[in-house]
Design a binder for these strands. Sequence first.
DNA 1: CTGTTAGCGCATTCAA
DNA 2: TTGAATGCGCTAACAG
Lengths: 334, 334
Amino acid sequence: MKINKNNVTLEDVARKADVSVSTVSRVINNGIVAEKTRKKVEKVIKEINYSPNTIARSLRGGRTNIIGFIIPDITNPFFTKLINELGKIYKDKGYSIIVCNTYDDPKIEKIQIETLLGKRVDGLLVTSSDIKFARTYEKINRNCPVVLIDRLISEELDSIRTDNIDGSMHAVSYLINKGRRNILTIAGPQQYTPGKERYEGFIKTLELFNLPVKESLIKFGDFTKRSGYELTKEALNNNVNFDAIFAANNFMGAGAFKALKDNGYKIPEDVALIMFDDLDLADVANPPITVVIQSTKEIGRRAGNLILDLIENKEKHEPKQIMIKSTLEIRKSV
Amino acid sequence: MKINKNNVTLEDVARKADVSVSTVSRVINNGIVAEKTRKKVEKVIKEINYSPNTIARSLRGGRTNIIGFIIPDITNPFFTKLINELGKIYKDKGYSIIVCNTYDDPKIEKIQIETLLGKRVDGLLVTSSDIKFARTYEKINRNCPVVLIDRLISEELDSIRTDNIDGSMHAVSYLINKGRRNILTIAGPQQYTPGKERYEGFIKTLELFNLPVKESLIKFGDFTKRSGYELTKEALNNNVNFDAIFAANNFMGAGAFKALKDNGYKIPEDVALIMFDDLDLADVANPPITVVIQSTKEIGRRAGNLILDLIENKEKHEPKQIMIKSTLEIRKSV
DNA sequence: CTGTTAGCGCATTCAA
DNA sequence: TTGAATGCGCTAACAG
């Protein structure tokens, strides 16, 4: 294990091995060196416990081997699973990832962007807290590759997200096919693609089945557990007639679940529930909660590799919007 | 918003403002500069969109403003909440955090350590995957402050963790006071403090109440949902007589929960369940799951500030083992 | 195959 | 109050 923050430098090695610094540099970079010299140098490197100073390398080579990941909420398993995938890709490539949590606050995001850019990250993975950053990221993208994840805020950038419309259509049509006719949707914020598209999928499905779109069955929340809870309770209190709930994300779904339980409703007999995005324990809840599962594995893997390609190739290309299909996991049949 | 990866340098500013680089340097570092000069320079900085190159700064100053956080599992909400707290502390101090997931694999941890050290992080927050790294981190700590979190692998380093013994004693004695006499414990791996101490707390409590310690009521898992599930099922299949379960962590508790449910046991009437560490949905599960809540807020805050102090002061000091009390959150009374 | 040298962008010492 | 010069540790161009 190399533990070198003790300022052992190339020069120290060179002196001790009685060669020049460039020779040492070649050794550690697998350049052309006589086998004998290489052995000698490597021995010294071990002896005095040398490890290259990445900072100096970065200054010289213009690359930091750091990728920034801007996310709105580290507490959401969706992002956590993404990071988990990224880790697998980067671990033996020398890349590290700086995670910047914006708390979904544009003011904080602005600071994070500057910090990250100051640190000269090689690339940026972004789930932005505000569509107004579209221009900013486009500009950044000219020198430092940017890949959007989950929230599409610009068509001029590469992006990867779940096919939200497909996913919600899948879920809602399942409910309809099971005979549910009054589906309450707890939709998300409409300024981001996930909220917007999941809502769109809901509406589209109703139209597809020629079902009326009732105002009273549409509620807008903010992706938090609390809002899912409150909105469901509100519908209950107002005697809105519904036999199913489609929640646009996991946290709101959890809130809805609690509200139903608290008020003595049986799931799914009285009210069926499907939420977009999984949650720990959703499969062991009682009843288990049916969810639209996003393929975090694939999203993470593709985003992670894409940004690497962009960093390494740097050539211009047409930005692509990649959409990944989700899966409806029925955990308790309606 | 400064978007500068476009290589605008101090020198560019200097030339354009018709001063020397050192003057510009002084301006951005709030050194002594005539008010008039400062204005002039600041104007140019804005004009050509200059922002300092942190890499160069780091090379010069020996500080990167990056803190490494080594964790075994980014997927566990415990760590996620910690990161959430750290983010709050660092966001406006210019510090960033590199998250390194080791997947609880020492081989990967070794690589991560080298990568992090190579990147010359200013400090290291560590939940190590192996006690054998104790020496390594002690050595690292001589040049680069290390703070252990959650798992105590060395007494010579600063560390912060939950008071596991107190927490589990709290939980177990609650069960006993409610009349449960046959408590099955699903303990964790004994090589780390969390597993060891939570088990120790369990045993201690039985002794305190003069209850027998029965071999059949002690199972060792590996902190995964699967092991919690399997071990519970095993006990059930073997007709082990128990009226309560104390699970040493959240995931194993979730597994136990599912096993009980699957086999038709009522919680807590037939078998009470308490698990160490919270989980999303634990409060809305049916029944809600009683948990020992670790104060991630305080752990995160203290660890985050401690490492900052160590980085900034650098003076020697006696390493401290800090323990934070947990809370027993009874969500469904036994 | 190996050595010398010139920066990468910045902060700081020393003179002025 | 300002400027010139040095070096942080490294890589790569060039010369030998």
